[in-house]
Amino acid sequence: MRVNIFSYSDKGSNLAVILASLFDDVRCYSTHKSHDDITYVKSSISQVQLEFDNSDLMIFVGATGIAVRSIAPCVKNKTTDPACIVIDECGNFVISLLSGHIGGANDYTHIIADKINAVPVITTATDVNNKFAVDSFAKKNNLAISDMKIAMQISSTILTENVSIEFDDDIIMKNSIGNGLVIDGDNKLGIYVGYKKILPYKTTLNLIPNNLIVGIGCKRGTSSEQIEKLFLAVTKDIDIRAIQSVASIDLKQNEYGLLSFCEKYNLHINFYSAEELNQLEGDFSGSQFVKKITGVDNVCERSAMIYGHKIIKKKTSAAGVTIAIALKQKEVKF
């Protein structure tokens, strides 16, 4: 986590040093030459523009107006902008300024305010009305948001009426649902949490967990196009953002087609030995021919189940490629 702190006075710089002690990867800048541990800059606005896209959290110790003018040219999108916080130089108030939910500014505001005994200032409507905040929920539980416009519609609607929510059977709720939500209601607007490509409501926001493992086996020399063709067929009813990784046997760790396929889809791949795969217990679609070649009776299902909870797509074969998909149980907290 990369943090940048900006201050504008002696008192502000002293507070900046205290704040810096709360983080590991932190850089402090000031327009005032007052502290050896802080880098002097002639223009904080120029430095903010240099650091903005590479920051996770930006803290401004000074007036809110300075912070607003500094970040204004850089602000692009609530899904990518860093968390921005303003703290007065006396440390009385910690204000969440930008990216309160997805960026985490609201959470950081509470944490920092607690550390320096200040008053946290949160202005997002769902928070001040004690309502469920869909973008905060998604970030906290590592869920991909299918459509930010629908997410904004939900945040607006939930202030005055309930919003429906539905979960896959394998999603485990660790606590009660958020204020303003109803389970499986008949509302036209609702949220579906799961890996499937389904739209339970007239207007559905899909929140996609990253909890699927794709096991792949293939003959030597299989092209990435062959793997991709079967992959797209097997996942036609699955949101591929739910895929956490690919798994296969270590005999395939230099298989160009397999590696190229994973690179195209930006999927991490793990390889396992035949010994590791054979240790798994379960009902697998075994093949003695495959066992003679690889030392294991089923590569794709066993690979997927190394860290999987259950198989949701059993072995499918085509053109020298086999694919299976396993699901890891997912817990969510409100």
Rank of each mutant, 00 (worst) to 15 (best):
N175V: 09
V121I: 13
P209W: 01
Y192P: 03
G217M: 01
P209K: 00
S245I: 00
G194I: 06
N142C: 04
L181C: 00
V128Y: 06
P200I: 12
V214N: 05
D186M: 12
K140P: 05
K196F: 03
E166K: 13
N142W: 01
I198F: 05
G194V: 07
A242K: 02
Y192R: 02
I191D: 03
L230W: 04
K139I: 11
L181G: 01
L251N: 10
K139C: 06
S155V: 08
I213W: 08
N117S: 12
I183D: 01
I158V: 14
S248H: 06
S224M: 13
P120T: 10
F132P: 10
I227D: 02
L159H: 04
S156K: 15
A133R: 01
S223R: 04
I240C: 01
Y195W: 00
N210I: 07
D184H: 10
L143G: 07
S245W: 01
D169E: 14
F132D: 03
S224L: 12
D168G: 07
L205M: 10
N179T: 08
L232S: 13
T126Y: 09
I208S: 09
P209A: 08
N206G: 14
D168M: 08
D169W: 02
K174G: 07
G190R: 08
G190M: 04
